[in-house]
C-alpha cells in the first residue's frame, strides 16, 4: 500500500467515515519555495540613477530580506511599480540587504520606474526562472560572457558569483553606439575582469558586432564556458558558430513575460513548448536551437 495511506484505518466502503479519517499528511506540500517566490514582497527604493543613454540602475531594499536568499545569476524578478506596470528585470547585484537592477527605459513601465525617487515603494515577485548554476563551471577556468545591449544588466552579478566559484570572466559588450556604454567597473569595484566593448557604428571599441568580437576572442583564448545574453540575433549567430570541443555554451533569452509563473504562456519559446519564465531564461544552446533558428528578434 502506498505510504500516503498508512494512517488510514477505516472500514472499506463507508465514505463518510473515510472522509474524516484520511490524513492531511498525505498531501505534503512540496511547493512552499515556489509559492514564496510568487508572493509580492514590498521593497523601498534606495537609489535610482542614470548610467548612460537609456540605461538606469535602481537599488532597492526589501522590507524582508528573505527574497534575497539563494538568488542565482540570470534569475529575474517581476518588479511592480504601483499604479503603473510590472516588468521583468534580471538581477544586477545583491548586497546583504539590497538588490539592484540595471534597466533600459523603453516603455511606460520602465519610464515610471526611472521616475521613482528614494523612499518610493515597489513590489518584488521572485526570484524567478532557472538562473545560471555557477557550480557547473570548472573552477580555475575562464568564462566568456557576451552581452548585447541591455543584456549587460545581469552581468555584474554573474561575474561576482563566478568569481566566488573561482572562475575568471572576460566580458564582450556590444551596443549600437557608445552613448549606451557605461563603465562596468564602476558597478563592479574590486573585481578582476576584462571588458571588451563593440559598437555597431564604430564609435568606440571594436568596430562591429559583439558576436564577431566574441568569435575572435574564442580563437585567441581558452574558455571553459560561453554565456551569451541578449536579443535573439546575437544568440542565434553565436549558436551557429562551430565551437571547439569542451566549451559549454549557454544562452539567456529575452521574451515578453507577463505573469512570470508559467500560467499565461506569453513567454512561450515557439515552436517549442518551453516557457522562458519557468524553464529559462538560461538554456544550453542545443536545447533551444529550434527557437533561435526560427528568426525574429
Amino acid at each position: 500500500m502506498s505510504k500516503v495511506f498508512e494512517d488510514v484505518d477505516v472500514a472499506v466502503g463507508k465514505c463518510s467515515h473515510i472522509t474524516h479519517s484520511l490524513n492531511h499528511r498525505a498531501s505534503i506540500n512540496t511547493s512552499s519555495e515556489r509559492f514564496h517566490n510568487y508572493l509580492l514582497k514590498p521593497a523601498e527604493v534606495v537609489s535610482n540613477k542614470r548610467l548612460s543613454e537609456g540605461l538606469w540602475r535602481v537599488e532597492m531594499r526589501p522590507i524582508s530580506r528573505e527574497c534575497l536568499n539563494d538568488v542565482k545569476p540570470l534569475q529575474f524578478f517581476m518588479v511592480w511599480i504601483p499604479s503603473s506596470d510590472e516588468i521583468p528585470l534580471s538581477v544586477s547585484d545583491l548586497t546583504e540587504d539590497t538588490i539592484s537592477f540595471i534597466y533600459k527605459v523603453r516603455g511606460l513601465g520602465t519610464k515610471a520606474l526611472s521616475a521613482l525617487r528614494p523612499g518610493s515603494f515597489v513590489g518584488l515577485k521572485g526570484p524567478l526562472g532557472n538562473g545560471f548554476e555557477v557550480s557547473y563551471v570548472r573552477p580555475s577556468s575562464k568564462a566568456l560572457i557576451v552581452a548585447g545591449g541591455s543584456g549587460i544588466a545581469p552581468v555584474p552579478y554573474l561575474i561576482k558569483k563566478l568569481a566566488v566559484a573561482n572562475v575568471q570572466a572576460d566580458v564582450v559588450w556590444g551596443v549600437k553606439s557608445d552613448a549606451e556604454l557605461f563603465n562596468l567597473r564602476e558597478v563592479l569595484p574590486d573585481l578582476d575582469v576584462r571588458v571588451f566593448t563593440a559598437t555597431e557604428d564604430c564609435s568606440a571599441g571594436y568596430c562591429g558586432l559583439a558576436s564577431q568580437l566574441a568569435v575572435e576572442l574564442l580563437n585567441e583564448y581558452v574558455y571553459s564556458v560561453l554565456i551569451a545574453i541578449g536579443p535573439k540575433p546575437i544568440l542565434r549567430s553565436l549558436c551557429s558558430v562551430r565551437l571547439s570541443g569542451g566549451l559549454e555554451f549557454y544562452v539567456a533569452l529575452e521574451a515578453v513575460v507577463k505573469c512570470g509563473l508559467g500560467a499565461c504562456g506569453s513567454c512561450v519559446l515557439e515552436p517549442t513548448d518551453k516557457l522562458l519564465c519557468v524553464d529559462g531564461p538560461v538554456f544550453r544552446c542545443g536545447d533551444i536551437k529550434e527557437h533561435l533558428m526560427k528568426g525574429g528578434n
Partner: peptide, 20 residues
C-alpha cells in the same frame, strides 16, 4: 496590463489576466 497574477498567503493565486 501586468501585474496579472500574484500569489497570496495561504497558497492562493490572484489573477487579473483580463481574458487575454
Amino acid at each position: 496590463e501586468p501585474p496579472i497574477i500574484i500569489a497570496l498567503e495561504g497558497e492562493g493565486l490572484l489573477n487579473s489576466v483580463g481574458l487575454a
